[in-house]
Nucleic acid binder design. Structure first.
Lengths: 148, 148
DNA sequence: GGCAACTATATTGCGCGCAATAGAATCGTG
DNA sequence: CACGATTCTATTGCGCGCAATATAGTTGCC
């Protein structure tokens, strides 16, 4: 390089490993999920719906996944088209859309129950390192939420 | 939820914090880079070109960033349209495209020299934690490269 | 009740990210 | 030299991810 800018080295930063690792993990999930016809963001959305006590709204899913309606609306329409979710307006507040997991959606849950284990296998990380990584990522998220 | 699938909890996994943290970091970069008209992937591409001793090919940039031509070709055309990069076929091998940083591209480097520092500031992570996070992410990448 | 703020979702536009494919140039082998 | 295999970039198609905007429904205040 023409002059020295050591702070601009690719590998010296956290940003690039984070970016590359996320894409690698997404691809690994993609291979595990292609059988059942889900993408990784669709899988995360189903996790949110499966984990809720009752039907969530689009906004509630967005709050959990940190995604907005521009991303979620078409994604949810695809999940509905695939038969995993039913979307209907909340009769009590017609602005809101309630997302209900269909019977087929509950069956899907059993078909992907092996996925987290398979992924942890692929990562081949110790439980201790995994917990540490999770802790650091949560910390990073909190800082960026506060003032990032 | 209807039945218990503890392994399917959103926060129990590494995947979701990784996914959310990456998007948060990308957004933080986006705010820092919007002044100069770069996106985050464009910035990473410029880092690769700035850091090379001589013009890189599309494939060489792809190897460094782990991106393929489907992503890079249009991205590089946008960088060329913005005046930061010159693309030309390698006279010695007409299959390859050489990517040269323009004068304007070198000037850009000085205008973003503050970005890594500003980002580290936003993360408000200790140097020790940053190094640990980087180490864990590199490890994760290696495992996924090998058999993921 | 009426009307202005506010809220929730949908739409549009653009830039990735990647699989699949195409097309051109080069290489290797006979 | 010929020709099939390989390499390199470009193209196409689709699904995010997000800013900006639009639209419909609700609430609060008078």
């Amino acid at each position: 390089m023409r002059t020295s800018f050591p702070q601009l080295e690719l590998d010296a930063q956290i940003c690039f490993p984070l970016y590359a690792a996320t894409r690698a993990v997404t691809q690994t999930y993609g291979r595990l999920l292609s059988d059942v016809g889900l993408t990784y963001p669709q899988y995360l959305t189903m996790l949110a719906l499966w984990g809720a006590e009752e039907p969530l709204t689009v906004g509630e899913v967005g709050a959990r996944l940190r995604l907005d309606s521009g991303t979620l609306t078409p994604l949810l329409k695809r999940l509905e088209a695939a038969g995993f979710v039913v979307r209907r307006r909340d009769p009590g507040d017609e602005r809101r859309v309630l997302l209900e997991v269909s019977d087929q959606g509950w069956e899907l849950r059993e078909r992907v129950a092996h996925v987290p284990g398979a992924l942890v296998e692929s990562l081949s990380m110790s439980a201790k390192e995994g917990a540490e990584l999770r802790r650091l990522l949560h910390e990073l998220l909190e800082h960026l939420d506060a003032d990032g």
